[in-house]
Design a protein around this nucleic acid. Sequence first.
DNA 1: TATAACCGACCGACCGGTCGGTATGTTATA
DNA 2: TATAACATACCGACCGGTCGGTCGGTTATA
Lengths: 192, 192
Amino acid sequence: MSTREKIIQSAKELFSKKGYNHTTVEDIVKHAGLSKGAFYFYFKSKDQLMEELINSMAERTKEIMRRWLNKGLSAEEMIRGHIRDFLVECYQDRHIAYVFFFELLCNREEFKRLHKKHMENILALLTKMVEKGYKEGEFRCGSVKTLVNLIVGYMRLLYMERLLLNNAGLEEILQEAQEGLDVIFRGLKCGS
Amino acid sequence: MSTREKIIQSAKELFSKKGYNHTTVEDIVKHAGLSKGAFYFYFKSKDQLMEELINSMAERTKEIMRRWLNKGLSAEEMIRGHIRDFLVECYQDRHIAYVFFFELLCNREEFKRLHKKHMENILALLTKMVEKGYKEGEFRCGSVKTLVNLIVGYMRLLYMERLLLNNAGLEEILQEAQEGLDVIFRGLKCGS
DNA sequence: TATAACCGACCGACCGGTCGGTATGTTATA
DNA sequence: TATAACATACCGACCGGTCGGTCGGTTATA
């Protein structure tokens, strides 16, 4: 692993453990077995490193969604498929996913805007999937907005509570996600 | 409003605007038209104020849930009812709800534990409601855990995205929450 | 006039960022 | 092919600003 990669990896781990604010540049470099000089050789500032982490994570997520959107599948298949990929991605990079979903919102306005920008893109992509379901008569109650919120809310919670706080395994999470989607798609009360 | 209340109110507003870390004690007292001396006359530390805010918010939420649990209603009625009350409470106190749901998770271990403790209580209460639904045959697919996660995730997202980021009105939020619950309870695909 | 309530100058720990330095290549030159 | 000239990668002491918390003093109240 290159020095630059070492710094990034170290930052990811520490940010997810202690948070952005409570992780010092000193912490990051010590944990990577380096010095501050190395850090500022590769990064303009602590903020710049943060932004880089966020952008890379968000772009990968969008890429996954775009891939599924272009497969010509039904809405349910697209949604289930991209969520699976998304959770796998989250699992592999769970440190930085935490930073994206939470850390970013507890910081200065600049970071909140960054989160908002990426979230808007992601929601727009999910909206496209869901819209298809309504347009083609696949979904019959609720509304686009409601469904999008249900899905995103569930994913976030799954990630936060199960993956991060409870350290659940990947298979377990995927299983749970499918169950939740079953409820959303089929409903609680209309047939088993 | 007493001086103590002024400080609390000021802290709530600033914490939700700038976050706990980026709100200084100086900010809080200036915004309340007071001085640091007043702050440290009423509070042992900035952390103690934070804990007080969190505990009070969490206790009120639990109280709402307990009230609905003891009404002898069906699971769906209990869930819909307490969520309504909860959202009203959140709306009135949206500043501190933000701190509870997000700020707490982006801070030192001590605060994370506090969040976890309250969350466990709240989830246990919700679980009781949901269990009743399965026990009495009201709910027919999914599982207790899945349903609890779906509901909590949706509430959190509604609160975060709609109430906080989009500044939606109370009636609008309540309406949306009902729609989401409709989907969960009836399902997307089994009858309109 | 005693005490509660409040003021605000100041302390000191902490942390992001800087900067002068070094060591290990790599390229140019004669 | 020896060496001067330069570049890259990294070190760590230090600086300057920030902010939680303290403390000696002042004002209001009963």
